[in-house]
Design a protein around this nucleic acid. Structure first.
Length: 1001
RNA sequence: GCCCGGAUGGCGGAAUUGGUAGACGCGUCAGACUCAAAAUCUGGUAUUCGCAAGGAUGUGCAGGUUCGAUUCCUGUUCCGGGCACCA
């Protein structure tokens, strides 16, 4: 040993020495201190590297690089007051791994993070506590950031965005103005400036938009002669952000509009006050104009099939017909002129099977179609429907409805068809009225059955009288001119005839409605709109940002207006008093990251051209239809205006699953007691008594409950007479107080003051808790704090464990139990480099073929698994590699160094540390990703499973280049095979190269 | 109600294109080291019959296609997510 001590590294103020081959006893006292540092001390090394990465701006990127770009984005979080739980970082860890992976592979990676900071919870908190939402949001953001930082993400924080900051929402308002000042030109299939529409009106009248909406036609001269209000009203019918009227959940007592979420069983979640439907002036985005392009765009992106299907279903494009039904005028009140009833149907072929009509309760003809004798029941029914939320209406299994008293006439044969009103028909879809064909539609069938409406069978044997059959294959019967025609063909025939007779026309319909874009709330972007004489005027771009003003209270304004209506200075300027919804800021934030500090534009074209689409977007499926559709629409709109160069924002989407909480329950007895002694007292309060799970499960067994009563009496004392007043109550208990299912009684007593004197009835001397898997939530005490885990095991362990839990896409319950295994793995990895007693063990010796084989096998698998987002199997691949290298006692730098690069996306801190200790002068994130060498992967033979009739019976080692004949000969001569053949000759030998061999007898 | 997912040992999960079901980890059992503990290491661990060799069963349930099905098809049960003002 030339030099017993060698300076190895200097970290902080202390030189680190490494001893080679020395025994502990022989070392000077100082080395005891040194040896401690041969351990994997994750907390200090993680802190050290996080500081160095920040100080060195290692993750800062810019837009001029010769490398190819890659954009990895997380759905940014709403900074809620409850902080992070282990479910939040799942997607961030996945994206972080992928961002680091791509960087190692030579890409210039944009990986930013920010906050979706406007939203209802902050406003509710303000309402309850009087804290300004900006303050509480700021505090929440700080907490989020602190927690995120400990996990060691490679976000470029210099690009952070916050949707509630004026510097950001100025551009949200700016884009709104562009939407307001645009219309959708269907001929060109793109958005154009509203000025171009005005010019068309001025030169050619309404010709350019004929058939767009039910607008009366006008000439150029008429247009010019219209008063301004009339002109503006017409333009409003075309603007992509427009004002209209829509129904909202209105709570009179709270004086506010409520989200569907806030309405439970027809009353407000807060306070339980009645909620009714109310028409209010609302802003909308005309997303329906983009329906077709949103549908077509799905072919150009890599979303999961399920996701595409959900979006397509939401858009809900269908081909059908609108049919006008005349109303019979012999009801006694025939003086009322009844317009025709227009229905939308996708099945015009079933026109002769129409047994009744149903109109939505909100349909404009409800009142005029209701005859005098039916007025009262119909009005009662409408009142009932109004008391129910849309959610309830949709989830309702009960069949409800009311006959209006009117009859419609079948356009072909004049048959009288009763017209009903029912909540299962929604006003917003189609025409709000349907023709019901009970033999072909399940809901119509149930309705007919419930109200005993006779059913016409037009599909013969296809209808069994028990349930509807939506087939299109049947030959029509009872169908006049369609008899004997298949339903498929009949659709076209009926449409032709309807159109030629002027009774209806073909029609493409969308389930999707325009997006409501205003909220009667405070904590959102103000609209840059001024109202004068009922006309909405946009603010000039120079006046942006229109700052959200301070308010004294966050209570709603008068007449259902938002809190801004309470500010005299605001209303004096006639500014719009509602604000934009949560999704406004999140519809374009991915663009702002590209150029976050630009004060002249929302995003410089050069920056958006360089970064382009988000290459990988990670987030939960809960945003499947909302956020993803809105941001796709905004992107298409900005593309139409030539402000960006791509019309789909997200090239590839990865949906992370939800991490559920594993709740624990204790069971509290409900009981009362009396003194039985001389000084009899009435009912007395008792200490809480909890029973272990087994007693709760068997509580209904009389013997058990009697036994329980005896046990409780013993616990409490004999001078009491005790009885159970109700069954025991399961209560959520903090999962931190439970080890597996066993309650830590000591800690439990400390948890809440009321439990300090608690008594327990145990099984096997233990208190066993009940379990349930449910959403992770503070109120269920089943949240797990990532920070505590990071402190205990380190960020690298935490990151890897979250990935190891299962496929990212899959929902799964959290269980901290297995985290030790991942931590052991990292320590085992460390020991390949440094041994606690021997110190440095890594060497620069050349690697053997066996070692290189492990390395290259691992390189191949890690590359593939990471690329296909199979992070859980990647972690196990690393475990296998380290296990195998440890078995071979491989401590060779040549091999280990590459292993570190493979692992660094997953466990960046330990890899950076070991990489550094190996003597590399630069960060491991700038190392080249290793390439698998085929030389070490090629196999010459394989251990084949040999099956007889599909059941594996033996294994044989056969060369990979063996031919079918060779394999047959080899296999059939095998002893084990012959035993199973039992003298019979095989029919066929199936040999699938590199897979298996199957002998069919 | 409608739309989209999911279901595999005691537990989380693996099986990438229809080809050896249970990789990897947890837990657990046995052993080594230790005065002891921790840490570490070695081995076993789907169920069932059997001393063993070996056999049978087995991927929510019921069928089907196939030489072969966790994987494809039909039906069904249960669980999770979404359903337009939560984000």
């Amino acid at each position: 040993m030339p030099d017993p001590f060698r300076v190895f590294a200097i970290v902080g103020r202390f030189p680190f020495y490494i001893t080679i081959g020395a025994k502990i006893e022989d070392l000077p006292a100082r080395c005891v201190f040194l040896l401690v540092h041969m351990e994997y001390s994750f907390s200090s090394l993680e802190r050290k590297w996080q500081e160095q990465w920040t100080a060195g701006q290692v993750y800062r990127v810019n837009s001029n690089s010769p490398k190819p770009k890659y954009y990895v984005l997380d759905m940014f979080p709403y900074p809620s007051g409850t902080g992070l739980h282990v479910g939040h970082p799942l997607g961030y860890i996945a994206s972080d791994i992928f961002a680091r992976f791509k960087r190692l592979k030579g890409f210039n990676v944009l990986h930013p993070m920010g906050y979706d900071a406007f939203g209802l919870p902050a406003e509710q908190y303000a309402l309850d506590h009087g804290v300004h939402p900006a303050d509480s949001t700021g505090q929440n953001i700080k907490n989020f950031r602190d927690q995120l930082d400990r996990i060691g993400f490679c976000f470029d924080w210099s690009r952070e965005v916050n949707t509630s900051e004026p510097g950001y929402y100025r551009w949200t308002q700016w884009i709104f103005l562009q939407l307001f000042n645009s219309w959708y030109n269907r001929n060109e299939r793109k958005a154009s400036s509203i000025q171009s529409l005005i010019r068309s009106f001025e030169t050619g009248g309404s010709a350019i938009v004929s058939g767009y909406r039910n607008l009366p036609a006008f000439t150029a001269e008429e247009w010019k002669a219209f008063p301004e209000k009339r002109q503006q009203d017409i333009l409003m019918e075309f603007r992509l952000a427009y004002c209209g009227y829509g129904e909202v959940n209105w709570c009179e007592r709270l004086g506010t509009v409520l989200a569907n979420d806030e309405v439970i069983n027809g009353v407000s979640e807060r306070g339980g006050y009645p909620v009714v439907k109310k028409k209010l002036r609302q802003w909308y985005l005309r997303i329906t104009e983009y329906a077709d392009r949103l549908l077509e765009g799905l072919d150009k992106v890599e979303f999961s099939d399920a996701m595409k299907e959900m979006q397509a279903n939401w858009i809900g494009k269908s081909y059908g017909a609108e049919i006008d039904f005349e109303i019979a005028t012999d009801q006694g009140n025939s003086q009322v002129q009844r317009p025709k009833l227009k229905v939308y149907t996708t099945r015009p072929d079933t026109i002769f099977g129409v047994d009744f009509m149903v109109i939505a309760p909100e349909h404009e003809l409800v009142s005029s179609l209701t005859t005098a004798s039916r007025r009262q029941p119909v009005e009662e029914y409408i009142a009932y429907v109004n008391s129910r939320s849309e959610r309830e209406r949709m989830a309702e299994k009960k069949i409800t409805g009311s006959f209006t008293g009117s009859y419609a006439l079948n356009p072909f044969d004049g048959r009288r068809i009763p017209v009903w009103v029912s909540e299962y028909v929604l006003a917003g879809y189609g025409t709000g009225a349907i023709m019901a064909v009970p033999c072909g539609d399940e809901r119509d069938f149930k309705f007919a059955q419930h109200f005993a409406i006779p059913i016409t069978n037009i599909i013969g044997k296809y209808f069994n009288g028990q349930e509807a059959n939506p087939t299109k294959e049947a030959l029509l019967e009872n169908s006049d001119f369609l008899n004997g025609v298949t339903m498929k063909e009949a659709i076209g025939l009926v449409n032709d005839r309807l159109e030629s007779m002027g009774l209806g026309n073909r029609r493409v319909n969308y389930k999707m409605r325009d997006a409501a874009f205003s909220r009667q709330r405070y904590w959102g972007e103000p609209f840059p709109i001024v109202w004068k004489n009922g006309i909405a005027y946009p603010l000039d771009e120079k006046e942006l940002p229109l700052l959200l003003p301070e308010v004294k209270n966050y209570k709603p304004g008068p007449d259902g207006e938002g809190p801004l209506a309470n500010i005299p200075e605001w209303t004096a300027r006639h500014l719009e008093t509602s604000t934009m919804p949560g999704y406004a800021g999140s519809s374009w934030y991915f663009l702002r990251y590209m150029d976050p500090h630009n004060t002249l534009q929302f995003c410089d074209r050069k920056a958006s051209d360089y970064w382009g689409q988000v290459d990988l977007y990670i987030g939960g499926t809960e945003h499947a239809v909302g956020h993803l559709l809105y941001s796709r629409m905004w992107t298409k709109f900005l593309f139409d205006l030539d402000l960006i160069g791509f019309d789909e924002p997200f090239r590839r989407l990865l949906n992370q699953g939800m991490i559920q909480g594993s709740s624990r329950f204790v069971y509290r007895l409900s009981m009362n007691a009396n003194y039985t002694g001389p000084d009899k007292q009435p009912e007395r309060k008792l200490p809480p008594v909890f029973i272990s799970k087994v007693f709760f499960d068997q509580y209904n067994d009389k013997n058990i409950s009697e036994q329980l009563l005896i046990k409780v009496s013993r616990l409490i004392g004999n001078e009491m007479s005790i009885w159970f007043s109700a069954p025991p109550v399961p209560l959520h208990v903090d999962v931190q107080l439970v080890d597996g299912v066993q309650l830590n009684i000591k800690e439990f007593k400390k948890w809440k003051q009321e439990y300090a004197e608690a008594l327990f009835i145990l099984e096997d001397d233990k208190y066993i808790c009940g379990t349930e898997t449910e959403k992770m939530s503070k109120s269920k005490f089943n949240t797990v704090d990532p920070t505590a885990l990071v402190e205990k095991y380190g960020a690298d362990t935490f990151r890897m464990y979250e990935m190891f839990l299962g496929p990212v896409e899959q929902s799964k319950p959290w269980d901290t139990k297995g985290i030790e295994g991942v931590h052991r793995f990292l320590r085992k990895l460390w020991r390949l480099f440094y041994d606690e007693s021997k110190g440095k063990v890594w060497t620069t010796m050349g690697a053997t073929d066996a070692e290189l084989k492990i390395l290259h096998k691992t390189i191949k698998k890690m590359d593939e698994d990471t690329e296909r987002h199979s992070f859980n199997t990647a972690v196990s691949t690393m475990m296998i590699a380290v296990n195998e290298l440890a078995d071979l006692k491989c401590h060779k730098k040549e091999v280990l160094e590459k292993i570190l690069i493979l692992l660094t996306p997953y466990a960046p801190h330990i890899c950076e540390e070991l990489w550094n200790l190996l003597g590399n002068p630069f960060s491991i994130i700038d190392a080249p990703y290793p390439v698998a060498d085929q030389k070490y992967l090629a196999e010459t033979d394989k251990q084949y499973p040999v099956a007889i009739n599909g059941k594996t019976r033996t294994e044989m080692n056969i060369s990979l280049d063996a031919t079918q004949q060779q394999v047959e000969a080899l296999v059939l001569s095998d002893v084990a095979v012959q035993k199973w053949l039992n003298g019979k000759s095989p029919k066929k030998v199936i040999y699938v190269k590199n897979k298996m061999i199957n002998i069919v007898v």
